[in-house]
């Protein structure tokens, strides 16, 4: 087995506050997991806001350096990528997708600009060759260059913009995509098109995906493995179905119960349970 990504007891401590009331915030308290190179998978990190899931994503992307522990991508320590050439090679293989597609794209810039600059930077292509690379990436997400060229972000729906963000990430031919809450700003009715797309990428292109979310319903639907984070700790890890069908920790059970079922009778019951649980406290 060769290892694609490996986190070894990674911690991150932020220092917060001013000169007189400085305190430390442990955002991540020891995360250890590895992704296999030969078997692409959707690896999900679940947790509420403040649980440290975004910090992990930023460390994997090399935007933050871990306080202790190491992150290795294909054997290379991510925080030791000093030269521009090595960083570019790393960035070509690990690509991000952000939460809010309306903020990820500048409203005054046409969307194809982002795609062309990615192609130029990582593939070194311009003109017709770039067109071809863009069209190929956009086809993977069910769009075409003709549909996107010259358009601005306000002309498209959130689901379409997020698909373009995925297409942009696909241009360099990455091994790993880090998607931080990619559907939370997208309409519920359009979410499934993104989530289904991740499945297709894994199965057809062999791209591994780190999917970060607080929504257990979509996590259950697409994940192969899942870790649940709570206040910086990884409290559960394992095969997605096994973990989510039978959560061991009180917190993961609460998260699971917080998923409203799409059925009025069951949903009202879930809300009623929560109401009595809250009033009992």
């Amino acid at each position: 087995m060769s290892v694609l990504l490996e986190l070894q007891s990674v911690t991150k401590t932020f220092s917060i506050g001013g000169f007189f009331d400085r305190s430390k915030l442990q955002a991540v308290k020891g995360a250890t997991f590895a992704l296999d190179d030969t078997r692409p998978e959707i690896f999900t990190i679940v947790g509420e806001s403040g649980s440290g899931k975004t910090t992990i994503a930023r460390m994997i992307l090399g935007n933050e350096t871990p306080t202790t522990g190491t992150i290795r991508f294909m054997g290379e320590d991510v925080s030791q990528l000093r030269s521009r050439r090595r960083r570019l090679a790393f960035m070509a293989r690990v690509q991000p997708i952000f939460q809010n597609p309306f903020e990820a794209f500048n409203p005054l810039t046409t969307l194809d600009y982002y795609l062309y600059s990615t192609a130029r930077r990582f593939l070194g292509v311009r003109g017709a060759a770039a067109d071809e690379a863009l069209d190929k990436a956009l086809n993977h997400v069910g769009l075409s260059l003709a549909e996107v060229k010259g358009r601005y972000s306000h002309e498209l729906s959130g689901g379409q913009l997020q698909r373009i963000a995925v297409a942009r990430a696909l241009i360099p031919g990455p091994k790993l995509i880090v998607a931080d809450e990619p559907v939370s700003m997208v309409d519920a009715s359009l979410r499934m098109s993104i989530v289904n797309l991740f499945r297709t990428l894994r199965d057809d292109l062999g791209v591994s995906i780190i999917y970060i979310t607080h929504d257990l319903a979509t996590a259950y639907y697409i994940s192969d493995r899942v870790i649940i984070m709570h206040k910086g700790d990884v409290i559960e890890a394992g095969e997605a179905r096994a973990v989510l069908d039978n959560p061991q920790q009180a917190y993961s059970l609460a998260l699971k119960n917080a998923v409203l079922p799409p059925d009025p009778t069951a949903a009202r019951l879930a809300l009623e349970r929560r109401r009595s649980a809250v009033s009992a406290v």
Partner: peptide, 23 residues
């Protein structure tokens, strides 16, 4: 019908269809 059937359910991993197109 589409809005309802596209919702993911815990315990169900069968493929859910997304509505094509945009508003």
């Amino acid at each position: 019908a589409h809005l309802i059937s596209s919702l993911p359910r815990l315990g169900d991993v069968s493929r859910r269809k997304a509505l094509p197109g945009k508003p």
